[in-house]
Amino acid sequence: MENKLHISVSPHIHSKRSTQKIMLDVLIALLPATIAGVVIFGITSLAVVAVCVGVAVLSEFLFNVIVKKQQTISDLSAIVTGLLLALNLPANVPLWQAAVGSLFAIIIVKCIFGGIGRNVVNPAITARVFMLVAFSSMTKAAFPLDSTAGATPLALLAEDKNAVSLQDLLLGNVGGAIGETCAVALLIGGIYLLVKKVITWHIPVAFIATTFIFTLAVHEFDFMLALSLVLSGGLILGAFFMATDYVTSPTTPLGKLIFGIGAGLITVLIREWGIYPEGVSFAILIMNILNPYIDSLTARKMFGGAKK
């Protein structure tokens, strides 16, 4: 009897959406910011990107080999983590420190918890926070090649609210991490993710709007200053690319809004009253930890009156 037919459970067709395609879209979306970073901060930033991505992929590969797990590097998520970490580092970070950070992100935060989808907190964010605590180089931001400024826009704006022009903030011609300064490039990437339906608007909009409104309230409704502060630091990068990480953010629209609002509030609290000038990473990290609770409190209601 011929018996070559494939047997499987329904559905027998698929949307063709895959983890790999989603990760590829994220990489494409990060491309403008990466290019902008290299243009603004010079070729050393490319070295940082190469080291972070290379170490991320290699460490995940070796981890899987050592623990005899199925190889997962083809899902591209390690590249995304490596690139996101690099974009969060200053261009003048010692390359060995970048390598340690990348190793930390992949092995400690991701692989040990079971690999993609199992991490509790965002690997790139956590590695950045780890580096901030471990290496003093992290507190000294890099500056654009043609810049004479000696501090990040967040520090400068704290001294003098007219110290940084809006144009420089939009184009990224200010001090900071490789991928966080050019707001225009980040927004192009963010819009790409929205159009491709990789992310929804809820988290970025809630995060940025909350930060803006809270900042406005703190600074006596100085609109231009609040706008400058929103465009400074890692907010745009964090809001579009890090806070929207599926694994560590809520699934329902309401949950996403709560997550974004919470992250915005914590960001401003740290920026205004904390000892660090920037609070985006800490804010996302804290919301990552709260995520399971937000998720269970905002679960979709089932049809047909499944009793609560």
Binding site: H6, P11, H12, I13, H14, R17, T19, I22, T72, D75, S77, G114, G115, I116, G117, R118, Y246, V247, T251, T252, A299, R300, K301, M302, F303, G304
Partner: peptide
Amino acid sequence: TAVPKETNCIRCGACVTNCPFGIT
């Protein structure tokens, strides 16, 4: 037809979002 290769859940929420009945 789909020949699915299973990987870890990435918690994207597509299953919940697309369920007509709001099941997780």
